[in-house]
Amino acid sequence: MLILPLAVGGPAWAHPDDDPPPPAPSATAATSTATATVQPPSGPEAPPATAELLSRTDGVAALLVRLQELRHQAEQAAQESTARDAELAARQAEVDRTDGQIAAQQQQVDASEGEAARLAGEQYRDGGLSGITRFLFSLTPTGLLSEAGDLQERSRSESDVVRELRAGRSRLAALGDTARQARVQAQLAADRARTARDAAQREASGIEAQLTALTDAQRSQLDQREGALADLAEQRLVASGLLGTGGGPATPAAATAVGYAMAQLGKPYLWGGTGPDAYDCSGLTSKAWEAAGVPMPRTSQEQWASLPRVPLDALRPGDLIIYFPDATHVGLYLGNGLMVNAPHTGAVIRVAPVAAMPVLGAVRPKA
């Protein structure tokens, strides 16, 4: 597991030697605290132009930290929401499947009851109350067993019908229990999904509220500072030797995935989005690989947990770069130290340096 704290943001971005940022500074308070709380990442000195830009945008450094914290929280909530929605869909599919089994089983029971009624009618016309008739009206399990045993001695056809009917009713009762449990689990999944969606919406609203309070000058400075820090982090990652070119060229499937992702450039980020008009981070990567005919886990956490790991010095185009210790963001590697991703609420799909966020590691879809 590799965590590269190479770019500025919330605590995950900050260098270990930096002072922690103050809690939740407001847009107006940010300028008075920024210089003391946020420093550029350590390592080789920044190029003069980058150093000058970082110095010029020190006034919004703390605000950038807070916005990055909010973005990360929002993405955590969005990925959780997506996972819970998938759970809900699976639970609902289980309910639907069980309901279908119940309907089919009910048809079998109805058929068996019809056959039993026919036999009972024939025996009644022949005189007396038959064993199968008493079976049909028996209300206790012991009565059912007793009558079934008697019938086996009297008539092979009657015992066959009774056995089928008894098994059918038992199976129907079991399916009913399964359906009730499935509905309870589906309701719990629905509650979890609703809670996760509410959390994601709250976090996204927090970002929007912060951005609304910014002046145009602050927005411009934030964009400049974020870009400069990402470029500097990428230079340091390349200089470290951790990012190699040993993975070789893209496979045909990976090339298709890369082509799909690049065709989405400029489309907006949307939590839970899977296209075609908007995407979240894992929605983009999963759809890109599905376009190449490779089924993919839906969330970045699932992609990190289930796909084969690949070292950064063996990256090849199409690999997935996983970010943050909790694996809450993912981008698609393009080569030459760049990746394409759906960054966060308020942003569009774009190409960025691999080190734009703290790298957890990389995985390779099985193509």
Results as ranks from 00 to 15, higher is better:
1 M>G: 13
4 L>N: 00
10 G>Y: 11
11 P>Y: 13
19 D>N: 10
19 D>R: 14
22 P>R: 08
28 T>Y: 04
37 T>H: 13
39 Q>H: 13
41 P>S: 02
44 P>F: 14
46 A>E: 08
46 A>W: 02
47 P>K: 05
47 P>M: 02
60 V>M: 00
69 E>R: 08
78 A>K: 04
83 A>D: 10
86 A>F: 06
87 E>M: 12
88 L>C: 09
101 Q>R: 06
103 A>L: 15
108 Q>L: 15
111 A>G: 14
111 A>W: 03
112 S>H: 12
116 A>M: 05
128 G>W: 07
129 L>A: 10
130 S>Q: 04
132 I>M: 03
136 L>F: 03
141 P>V: 00
145 L>W: 08
147 E>W: 13
148 A>H: 09
153 E>I: 14
155 S>W: 01
162 V>I: 12
163 R>Q: 13
166 R>I: 05
170 S>Y: 11
173 A>I: 03
182 A>M: 09
186 A>Y: 00
187 Q>C: 00
190 A>Q: 12
191 D>I: 05
191 D>V: 06
192 R>G: 10
192 R>K: 15
199 A>P: 03
201 Q>V: 14
201 Q>D: 13
201 Q>P: 02
210 Q>L: 12
213 A>D: 06
215 T>P: 02
220 S>R: 12
244 G>L: 03
258 V>N: 02
260 Y>I: 06
268 P>V: 12
270 L>K: 10
276 P>E: 05
281 C>G: 06
281 C>L: 11
288 A>Q: 01
291 A>W: 02
293 G>R: 03
300 S>H: 04
301 Q>H: 10
303 Q>C: 00
303 Q>I: 05
309 R>K: 11
314 A>F: 07
317 P>N: 09
326 D>W: 03
340 V>Q: 01
341 N>T: 15
341 N>H: 15
344 H>Y: 11
347 A>M: 12
349 I>A: 01
357 M>R: 06
365 P>V: 14
